[in-house]
Design a protein around this nucleic acid. Structure first.
Lengths: 199, 199
DNA sequence: TATATTTGCTAACAGTGTTAGGTAAATTCA
DNA sequence: TGAATTTACCTAACACTGTTAGCAAATATA
């Protein structure tokens, strides 16, 4: 009997509509302002209907996280296929990853838990003090003959990003390696960075 | 007349109590569950009193952000002072930065907007697919004679962290450089990483 | 002492996620 | 077909958020 099938299909349909609608709202107004009630109103159903399809709000977000990683994987796979040389492959992956992040900010922010309440941080006296301290040291390492503002700024950003990247990934996940390995990763990354500055 | 002064002092005091109490709550239960009402209850004042000291909740968070950056700066400055060699200085800064992040998770998360709603992400099929794709390429670059699981895992994490660090810093700030410079930073960082793999 | 100011409260508004309980329609079974 | 059962859906509530208007009491000033 096709009745059960039709019901399943209809249920699937509403689920898809919920996701589509939610996604549109996120693109328009960001994750912070996505609410179950607004979704319900947009799809012209009452609130509890949404709970027939998702256990809670987090389940909806999780669905998008999964979508995000799937999309990213597809793009990375395709990008890398075009090359034979592993160095070229890796560069292509990096490029594609970067593009994905900025062309799909909504996905990326969700996937990596970016964008808490308060902080779209600006240049305050506090952050500038840290920047100056670090940048002066990096300039010394680059060497007086090769220092220029572009280069210096670039290397500072790289240094900081390596550190912050390592930390934020470590901080946001459970399934992780030991503290010793983590420390090794930093040491390795930073020593590599310093070597690269000097050549 | 000292009355006005005493009043100012008392006002300052309540402000400090609000911050202290809020900080304790955050250490116990994280940022997500910090609320104005809970603070009010804890300090045994009514809710609107808090608004006499802070414009809104975000202002409280901003205060902590500032504190965080000040503390971080102090630690970095001290750490770097112990060395003369700039390479040693920079290493000390990286080490100290790392320690700060994990000994003061609450600060760090707030300072860099980490920890949105849903994601303490785990190893899903989607993320593992990406990991395998990337790690295989990195292994090739390391060279068959030098590959081992520690090394491979380490380099994978470094690669990903560099990328994610660059992206997440770029994504969370307004006062930023042009897209071209950003792309330069990635290219530079990744080519440095690759060079480092091969030597 | 009378007036003005500050202080702190209650109570509300508007929003959030989530769920209990009831009704009416659709489907199944006798 | 008619009764029983399941399903779909909604209203209304609960327990929370941040924020603010308006009022009463304590304090300081004239």
């Amino acid at each position: 009997m096709g009745i059960a099938e039709r019901r399943l299909r209809q249920k699937e349909e509403i689920r898809a509509i919920i996701l589509d609608t939610a996604w549109e709202m996120v693109k328009k107004e960001g994750w912070q302002s996505l609410s179950i009630r607004k979704i319900a109103e947009a799809i012209e159903y009452s609130v509890p209907v949404i709970y027939d399809h998702f256990e809670n709000k987090e389940a909806i977000l999780l669905e998008f996280t999964k979508q995000g990683f799937q999309l990213l994987f597809k793009k990375l796979e395709k990008a890398q296929e075009k090359y034979d040389d592993p160095a070229a492959k890796l560069t292509a992956i990096a490029d594609t990853y970067w593009d994905f992040a900025f062309k799909n900010k909504e996905y990326y922010q969700l996937m990596f838990g970016l964008g808490m309440a308060c902080c779209e941080f600006e240049a305050t006296p506090e952050t500038m003090a840290i920047r100056k301290l670090t940048q002066d040291i990096i300039n010394e390492l680059i060497g007086k003959n090769k220092v220029n503002s572009t280069n210096s700024c670039l290397k500072y950003h790289t240094f900081w990003s390596v550190l912050h990247g390592l930390i934020s990934i470590k901080m946001m996940r459970k399934w992780d390696v030991t503290d010793e390995v983590n420390k090794l990763v930093v040491k390795d990354a930073i020593s590599g960075f310093i070597k690269n500055l000097q050549n």
